[in-house]
Design a protein around this nucleic acid. Sequence first.
DNA 1: TATGAATGAGTGTTCATTCAT
DNA 2: TATGAATGAACACTCATTCAT
Lengths: 207, 207, 207, 207
Amino acid sequence: MANPMRDQKLDTLLSSAARVFAQHGYHQTSMRDLARASGISLAGVYYYVRSKEELLYLIQRRNFEAVIAGMRRALAGVTNPVERLYRFVDNHLDYFATHMAEMKVLSHEAGALTGDLLQTVNDMKREYTRVLMDILAELEASHGPAHLNRRVAAYSLFGMMNWIYNWYDPLGDVGVELLSQSVCRLFLGGYVGLPVPESSLPQSAAG
Amino acid sequence: MANPMRDQKLDTLLSSAARVFAQHGYHQTSMRDLARASGISLAGVYYYVRSKEELLYLIQRRNFEAVIAGMRRALAGVTNPVERLYRFVDNHLDYFATHMAEMKVLSHEAGALTGDLLQTVNDMKREYTRVLMDILAELEASHGPAHLNRRVAAYSLFGMMNWIYNWYDPLGDVGVELLSQSVCRLFLGGYVGLPVPESSLPQSAAG
Amino acid sequence: MANPMRDQKLDTLLSSAARVFAQHGYHQTSMRDLARASGISLAGVYYYVRSKEELLYLIQRRNFEAVIAGMRRALAGVTNPVERLYRFVDNHLDYFATHMAEMKVLSHEAGALTGDLLQTVNDMKREYTRVLMDILAELEASHGPAHLNRRVAAYSLFGMMNWIYNWYDPLGDVGVELLSQSVCRLFLGGYVGLPVPESSLPQSAAG
Amino acid sequence: MANPMRDQKLDTLLSSAARVFAQHGYHQTSMRDLARASGISLAGVYYYVRSKEELLYLIQRRNFEAVIAGMRRALAGVTNPVERLYRFVDNHLDYFATHMAEMKVLSHEAGALTGDLLQTVNDMKREYTRVLMDILAELEASHGPAHLNRRVAAYSLFGMMNWIYNWYDPLGDVGVELLSQSVCRLFLGGYVGLPVPESSLPQSAAG
DNA sequence: TATGAATGAGTGTTCATTCAT
DNA sequence: TATGAATGAACACTCATTCAT
């Protein structure tokens, strides 16, 4: 049943595809592009994958699974909510930074899947989001009260993290560790650490 | 020279197109789809627009111009950095929430433009980013020091804001005003207002 | 609404297609073949038909409609069952002989349609068969009793008539009129006019 | 030289293939379909058969050979022309009814062969047709004169018999024996046994 | 004897775009 | 100002077939 040669070729194909998808976008990329990039013939690609959409699905699923597995390992045995949050963020950004192409495909091409494939990936997202939400709940219990709605906070954090494919360069000045710390600090204590009471915030356009 | 009839039809076309682009994606959408959605004949679309790419460009430029114009109005005469930041964020999210389709197209289809059209939009983005960076600098001067690198902070804020097309429902529980306040608070004071000293953050995998 | 130019071009396309389908078979024929045969560009074909299957459907429907319309005209006002049968056969074979390609496509490619298109054509076939069955019933009433099951007789007659695309040459020795007479005579009186009572027929392998 | 194992597997392959060809048509069926249906691997099929066309050829030849061999047996020693005709028809329909799939492939996919393979099958058809034509000649000598052209009569009879794959159900009401009798009677004595003199048939559209 | 892996050629179909009117 | 007609180029995908093993 298991076939290491085949799996290895499939891996090569998936990572080539992720690279090209990340660069040009899923819909812009033709199967011929993928064949060329992976060194397989066009028809050969179909020996490993049923369709272009399945290829996208495999990229998304495999990498999301890796993120989730890493997250479980990172959180195992850790109880301090602040520490748990940090590890959650660090795992996410670390994987992102070392798999920029794949994660851009995961973040940017979320809407390209349909049907059962979409369902499966969405289920994983829900599970992953749940974990973060739970951490936030613990955080509120230990360090609360929260300054804002928990769901808004969670998605804002995901926004910070998932947006990085638009600007972050893993080889640039800011290392992944620093990035993780920055995002964590921003999330936990704010940019300049202002304790922002309700009244201190401007109401709409009024001063 | 000016032709109000033409401009009005173009507006209709652009907003129809934004809606369809937002729903199905730029590359997924065919000119026939746009013709159908706007009630114009396929060939007629080409009377108002040179190409599909120009259509995308016009959507991005017009809406970005509106965002920038609104931002200028909101900041005019305001000197308090906190207030300026709030107004920057509020303008961004308010426009986003009231133009979800257009802003999704602006956020999600950034990479679909090429050449001069891309250049022009990128110039606007640079200008817009500059303004936020300057506000952060003022903020550091008045409330500093910052907990993190300014550039990282700026892009994290943009991440929070631009990611909302993935989850935010303008008609749902969380109103735009609350959303703006939440993002501002998160950015300024953090989720639970922890004063996060260097040492309190875990180093890598170590506690 | 009506567009004579378009209809004329569609007619040309349909008859070219029928010719090529008849010669090489529906599935063997590519849309490129049809484009070449009709002098239209490949994409141009799709301006007139939605799909290859619709093209086949249109050929089948149009010609079957013509056969049925001709049959109705031929039977109008005629009451003598023998005369009615002759006219039914003559109409069928005359149309067949003057539209060999189209009728071969109708006879031979019956199974190539699917779904609603198949349904529609099958409905016409049922209607057409019904008319023959009714004529046979009248024939039995006036000249009966029948030597064999009515349904078997009807399908045998259709077999004789629809099989001709395998051997008949409209330009050869046997004219259509003679063909019609021959089939009618065969059906009505047999090859040599033997009155074949039950007992005169051999039982299985026994003499 | 002879290899019974191989022959047996080939038989399995041929009958699976006939079934699938009959159901979906020769050109519609892929070698993968055939591999699946026969339980052999795709490449394995090519061990037994040089090409898809040869597969079709083998089906057609084998079954036609069986029909011809049966016909020879059935006619052996029989001299009465009526009896000979009946036996010819009965053999044909009996084999057809017990090998519907194969015979549909023989009847319907006649045009799918090319070159030498087509030639060989056509030679068999000519030989087979010759036998029927001779029987008709004997029939005319003993029971004549004929009501119609001998060639037209022969092909009409083949039409009746070969068309049955379009309507006949071997498991239905009408047994093969009855079918044979019916076709024979129809051919010999007509549907209602009308003695059809020249003048009694309508001339074209005239009464 | 049998097959997993691979491919060049071709399939039906859609696309953004043009142009005569 | 607007469109029906038309197309070259490209698309995702399938095909019969081969070949090393």
